[in-house]
Design a protein around this nucleic acid. Structure first.
Length: 425
DNA sequence: TGGGGTTAT
DNA sequence: ATAACCC
């Protein structure tokens, strides 16, 4: 049965994009309900990274400086959101909840998920046809207010997709207390673009006849997910400024400027075509922790910062249960003109005798790790010369499951479930 | 402009 | 190891 679905052309997929409303602010309002009806911002360093809708009504925007935000809105309440632990935990609860409906769930950041509901839709459409039930209703908005033709099986399937999206949002609200938007369409690109069309706590389905309207509604090329800052700059030098320009641009010239792979991909995106699959995210590929600051200019300070980053990280890795085999140190050096883009990193394998210690408490793994990280630091920075760092980040990656013999006798008998990831507990 | 993440080269 | 992308 699953073969019949995957063998069918990609045009028949039904994809749901779920996008939580101002996620960090919602989590903070759940942690402290008194903040519910007040304008609330979440602060990291001197930036308001997100805010609730009360604050938005009063003119606060995402990524506004604290100074500007307070000027706009003196009553604004700010909570510090530099520790992502509460958001990360809630984020994985959402992904796990969606995973109860369907195995194909892909995370995008902490507050978005793609779900390929093609199979669920298939089952429901079959049931509907057998029971001869024709009372099928769309849930939420239809993009462009386009008329639905339920005799068109593509329409029918997307309408059923909208009902499933509604069930997702209801479950997320009932069980986790979170609101969000959803978009339903035939691929990831379109589902993501359409999910934002009605904004807080609403959902929208895109029917194929309105695809070009959705695409052409994008005023800037960078609004296409997958076309970022760099590609936009290069397209601008070619005179490509909007979707129509990109659609019409000669493929051969595009391929010469951007390379065949990127050119083909983004030109397809410009038509609303995206055959990339929903790839289940599973547990995280890496764990990192970083801190930014005005200035760090001595080895002693660097060591102190690293020692501050490690305990939290080690705790997360311990709870995850897997062992990292690679460690990386990333720095950002101060440079007045540059676009804050100048990060460099060094990584190395973790010595096997240290890997063993990740499972256990009480053994001191911190000191040897700090030593390794300081060696990596010296590979980047000549400590005899002056330096000025503005960020330090430690990342553990190349995560591997414990050898099964180490998992304790009971581990041998436990059913190997796909880990719903290293979130909770 | 934070504090995270991913994949491709 | 970096560079691009995403939030």
């Amino acid at each position: 049965h699953s073969k019949s679905v995957s063998a069918r052309s990609a045009a028949h997929r039904v994809i749901v994009h779920v996008d939580l409303d101002c996620f960090y602010a919602q989590v903070e309002m759940i942690r402290n309900p008194e903040l519910r009806d007040k304008p609330l911002g979440v602060q990291q360093k001197y930036i308001v990274v997100t805010c609730n809708y009360e604050a938005r009504k009063l003119g606060v925007k995402k990524l506004m400086s604290v100074k500007d935000a307070k000027e706009k809105c003196p009553q604004l309440i700010l909570v510090n959101g530099e520790d992502l632990t509460p958001y990360r935990e809630m984020s994985y609860k959402v992904t796990e909840l969606l995973g109860e409906f369907c195995p194909l769930v892909e995370r995008l950041g902490f507050d978005e998920n793609f779900v390929d509901v093609t199979e669920i839709v298939e089952e429901r459409v079959n049931q509907l046809q057998q029971s001869g039930c024709s009372r099928v209703c769309v849930f939420g908005h239809v993009y462009n207010n386009q008329a639905i033709n339920l005799h068109d099986t593509t329409h029918l399937r997307l309408v059923v997709g909208s009902q499933i999206a509604g069930e997702f949002r209801e479950a997320i609200y009932a069980r986790l207390g979170l609101t969000g938007c959803a978009g339903v369409a035939s691929n990831k690109l379109l589902s993501k673009l359409v999910s934002g069309t009605f904004k807080p706590n609403q959902q929208t389905v895109l029917l194929p006849e309105s695809c070009q309207d959705l695409i052409r509604s994008l005023d800037r090329i960078q609004k296409v997910p997958g076309i970022g800052y760099k590609t936009t700059k290069r397209l601008e030098t070619l005179g490509v400024r909007n979707m129509c320009d990109l659609q019409a641009f000669p493929s051969a010239m595009l391929e010469k400027e951007l390379g065949v792979s990127i050119a083909k991909r983004i030109q397809k995106l410009s038509y609303g075509e995206d055959d990339s699959p929903v790839t289940p995210s599973g547990p995280p590929q890496s764990f990192s922790d970083e801190d930014s600051f005005k200035k760090c200019s001595s080895e002693v300070e660097v060591k102190k910062k690293i020692q501050e980053l490690l305990p939290n990280l080690l705790d997360r890795i311990y709870k995850d249960g897997r062992q990292p085999h690679t460690v990386r140190l990333t720095i950002r050096q101060f440079s007045p003109a540059d676009k804050w883009f100048n990060r460099e990193s060094r990584q190395c394998p973790i010595p096997p005798h240290l890997i063993q210690k990740f499972g256990k408490e009480s053994t001191n793994i911190i000191s040897p790790l700090v030593d390794i990280l300081m060696k990596l630091f010296r590979k980047m920075i000549d400590v005899d010369l002056p330096f000025h760092l503005t960020l330090l980040s430690v990342c553990f990656s190349n995560l591997k499951d414990l050898p099964s013999s180490k998992k304790g006798s009971i581990g041998f008998y436990l059913k190997q479930m796909s880990p719903p990831s290293g979130s909770g507990k």
